[in-house]
Amino acid sequence: MNVLKVPARTIAVFVLPCLLLYVCLVFIPILVSLYSALLDWNGISGANFIGLANFKTMLFDDPVFWPSVRRTLLYAVFSMAEIPICLMMAILLNRYVKRANTLVSIYFIPVILSVVIIGQLWKTIYNPASMGGMINGILNSLHLTSWTHSWITEPKIAMFCLYFVSLWQYFGYHLLIQFTGVQNIPSEIYEAAKIDGADGFKADRYITFPMVVPIFKISIVLAFIGSLQAFDLIMVMTGGGPANATETISTYMYNMSFLSMKYGYGSALATFLVVICLVFTVMINFVFKRIENKVS
């Protein structure tokens, strides 16, 4: 509830420095991008205003666009689906492990490592057996040669291999966030519930889940942002290839703006990202309002 009546000047002191910086360096560039989306421009010289032609091409004539959107959204779905699992793990950690903090810290390691490291590591895992790839090496030694794949270069499965790396890397991240939420619930509440006969998963159903909803929301939002911006990992591992098979909206945007030198078109893709972001923000607020109302 907003209760403090303060003079306008105070509001200005609190909000303006941050807002100004944000508006100048994030918001205005976004608006510039929206405008650039209406141009036929190579990013260097000679821009032509072409109205909505870029959007028309993007939505109706571009064979790469919709698959990229699908991959991006699927990325988001997988990333978000990981969070309930992290929550379960956090609950188990809290219940069974005495020095859980240390474990959580260890699980967090992949998050702080550079994508360059992660990319190189997983490449050596996914490589063909002839290049020392781990998975294929193991499959071969188990005489499951027919199961071997050239994991990140087969168009049909490459993207899923990338999803997996991302899930692995950010597992510790969401676990940490969920763990802090779970650990924060006062133990008295569980003790009281125990007297009422609620124990184990029953207690989770009625106590833990409702209590961690706000934290859960943070994780969901972070996961969604992470997947919309998924760029570095893909660039390091496949570069969006083979033949655009692992292209997401943001890698495709890079490809168009800087490699194909169709900056206007790249901006149209950026605009599309902004729209998805808007829709998602509205959606997530709506969903969580309902959940919060339901549980409290």
Partner: peptide, 9 residues
Amino acid sequence: FEEGATSID
């Protein structure tokens, strides 16, 4: 070509 060539820089 070697296997998995499209992921090798």
